[in-house]
């Protein structure tokens, strides 16, 4: 499944880029992320618990940041495996500066497998959009909070 979209962040490009590389920030913004541990440069191990409606599932996974081009763009690879299925997402994040603000554009591909792929086709699109939205909403809060005097 292709995903793409853009979100505005109340932060300059350089700071937005750094926020997006900060494991603590990522962990606090990724919906359900319980743990994000750096295991190598640009590679993190992740534990997350997805809770949506009655669905809940634990995922163990990896987050990798590749092709860094600060403060313009980087590639984000997220992989997760759990009892209810597995997913792999790969996307290019591009940051367009706009003074105090910036816009984060993402363009990528998500592959979903296992039970969620077999029985949840109807809901994968709207659910992933919701997750991305929650991520950026939280990220905005973080960016705003950090920039507050």
């Amino acid at each position: 499944m292709k995903i793409h979209g853009s979100h505005a962040l109340p932060a300059g490009a350089a700071r937005a880029y750094n926020l997006l590389q900060d494991p603590e920030v990522l962990a606090s913004c990724m919906p359900g992320c319980e743990k994000l541990v750096k295991v190598a440069d640009g590679t993190y191990e992740m534990k997350m618990k997805m809770v949506l409606a009655a669905v809940s599932g634990q995922f163990d996974g990896k987050v990798r940041i590749t092709d860094p081009d600060p403060p313009h763009s980087f590639k984000l690879v997220v992989e997760g495996t759990g009892r209810i299925g597995f997913m792999k997402g790969e996307g290019l994040l591009r940051i367009t500066p706009g003074g105090e603000q910036c816009t984060v554009q993402y363009d990528g591909d998500v592959h979903v497998g296992g039970t969620i792929a077999a029985v949840g086709q109807r809901l994968i699109d709207s659910t992933s959009k919701l997750m991305i939205k929650r991520f950026f909403d939280k990220l905005c809060e973080r960016a705003a909070a950090a920039s507050a005097p």
Partner: peptide, 9 residues
């Protein structure tokens, strides 16, 4: 991946 794995789809 079989995308039509249930009568929902």
């Amino acid at each position: 991946q079989l995308l039509t794995g249930e009568f929902m789809d």
